[in-house]
Structure formats: structure tokens, C-alpha cells
């Protein structure tokens, strides 16, 4: 019975560790694939005489770690290991290349939500700093130091 319990986890560990290595390998491959030009330029879309090629910006981040250790306790010596990781990919349309029989042009994609959020952040930062500059406590402190 004891033999069974010791064998089963070992075989599971071997299976799960190789699965984990495979998973990390495939994840890394997919991660490095993000730098490929194909990830930035979409498939050309034909519409009559016009061909449209969408373009996007891709940002991908990945991180993982693993650990292994041994220890001795009242029931004997044991060993174990573990690992984890995470990542995220963000994509945002940048422009569209429009090819017509007459011309080829690049039509930029403007994201008003992102611009509005940036304006609010910048405005908020300026207001917060202005409030800090005009605070009487700060003015008194500066006068005292000078």
C-alpha cells in the first residue's frame, strides 16, 4: 500500500513535469513569435479593386520561475519543487494600408478613448502639482528655508 502511494505521485510528477516543460517550451515559442512581422500586419482583405491591409501594435510580456528543494522532517527526508508563470499580450490597431488602382495610402487609426484617458491623466497630474505649489504650507516652508 505504501509502495503504491509512493509510486503513484512519482509517476504523476514525472508526467506533470514533462507536461510543464512542454507547456513552457510552446509558450516561449509563441512568445518569441510575437516579434514576427506577420503579427503586426494582417492578411490583405480584397474588396473589389481595393486591397486593405490592417496593421497593429503588439506588446507581449512573459515571466516564469521554478524552484526545487529538499528537507528533513520527522517522517524522513523529502523533496519537492514547483513553478509558475504568467504573461499577457496586448494588441492595438495602428493604421490601415489602402491600395487602390490609383494610389497606395496609409490611413491612421486614432483611438479617442486612449487620448481622452491620457488627457485626463496629464490634466490631473498638472492640477495636483499646481495645488501643491500654491499651498500656503509649502510657501511658508520655502520662505523659512530661504
Amino acid at each position: 500500500m505504501a509502495e503504491e502511494t509512493s509510486i503513484t505521485p512519482t509517476s504523476m510528477e514525472v508526467g506533470s513535469s514533462s507536461q510543464a516543460i512542454d507547456m513552457v517550451g510552446s509558450t516561449l515559442e509563441r512568445f518569441l513569435d510575437t516579434a514576427d512581422v506577420k503579427r503586426v500586419y494582417g492578411e490583405p482583405i480584397q474588396h473589389g479593386d481595393t486591397v486593405v491591409i490592417p496593421t497593429a501594435e503588439v506588446l507581449a510580456g512573459l515571466g516564469f520561475g521554478a524552484g526545487y528543494g529538499t528537507g528533513t522532517g520527522p517522517q524522513g527526508t523529502g523533496e519537492g519543487g514547483g513553478g509558475g508563470g504568467g504573461g499577457r499580450t496586448l494588441s492595438r490597431p495602428v493604421a490601415v494600408i489602402i491600395v487602390t488602382p490609383e494610389s497606395i495610402r496609409v490611413q491612421e487609426v486614432v483611438d479617442p478613448t486612449k487620448i481622452a484617458l491620457a488627457a485626463i491623466t496629464a490634466g490631473g497630474f498638472m492640477m495636483a502639482m499646481l495645488m501643491r505649489f500654491i499651498s500656503p504650507r509649502r510657501a511658508m516652508k520655502e520662505l523659512k528655508t530661504e
Partner: peptide, 29 residues
């Protein structure tokens, strides 16, 4: 595309963490 040939060019920035523990890729047209 039509009578023209287009070669797309992309610029990428790759940051790799020491020990191959991950990284960051910023790819843009």
C-alpha cells in the same frame, strides 16, 4: 496588391530577463 508590390517593415524591441525567465516584446509597424 494590384500592380504594386508592398514589403511590410516592422520594428521590434525585445527585452529578455536574465536567466531566460521571460521578457517583453514590443512589435509595431
Amino acid at each position: 496588391a494590384g500592380d504594386s508590390t508592398i514589403v511590410p517593415l516592422a520594428k521590434s524591441l525585445q527585452i529578455r530577463l536574465p536567466g531566460g525567465r521571460g521578457g517583453l516584446i514590443w512589435n509595431r509597424p
